[in-house]
């Protein structure tokens, strides 16, 4: 588990899709960075955004709030947002918050890119 003080966020493009890949735990101290990164990506108006969560072993309510904000932003701008490769821990947190039915979830990046 990454208990370090940083959250690394990679942004890459595949065709018309922008993929955001955070690596590290998303908590109160780190969610502002993820929020800014996603907001910057949305501003560029890509055709689709994939949030690859394979490197996120943990997320608190501020992280969930960040993703809900991203979803609202994506709906407002009509940019589909897909989440992929959730770790079992993050998936369980999403389910407890009953957000698993709100987001479009994909098993892996390939499914998200082809979906």
């Amino acid at each position: 588990m990454n208990a370090g003080s940083t959250l690394e966020i990679a942004v890459e493009t595949s065709g018309e899709t922008t993929i955001v890949t955070p690596k590290g735990e998303v908590d109160m101290a780190r969610s502002p960075l993820l929020r800014k990164s996603i907001a910057d990506v949305m501003k560029a108006k890509p055709k689709r955004v994939v949030l690859d969560l394979s490197g996120v072993p943990y997320m608190d309510s501020s992280g969930l709030a960040t993703m809900v904000e991203a979803l609202q932003n994506s709906r407002k701008n009509q940019i589909p947002l897909l989440l992929c490769s959730l770790t079992p821990r993050v998936r369980s947190i999403l389910e407890i918050a009953r957000l698993n039915t709100v987001f479009t979830l994909c098993d892996g990046r390939a499914q998200a890119l082809n979906g």
Binding site: M1, D27, M28, A29, Y58, D60, R89, S92, I93
Partner: peptide, 30 residues
């Protein structure tokens, strides 16, 4: 806020020590 991560790490370690599984440990830490 930056101290939340080390406290979480300690909580996960203690939870594992008493036999909680990974998901339960994560939920307690959360």
């Amino acid at each position: 806020p930056e101290l939340l991560a080390p406290v979480r790490a300690m909580t996960n370690a203690m939870a594992a020590r008493v036999g909680l599984n990974d998901i339960d440990a994560c939920h307690l830490a959360l």
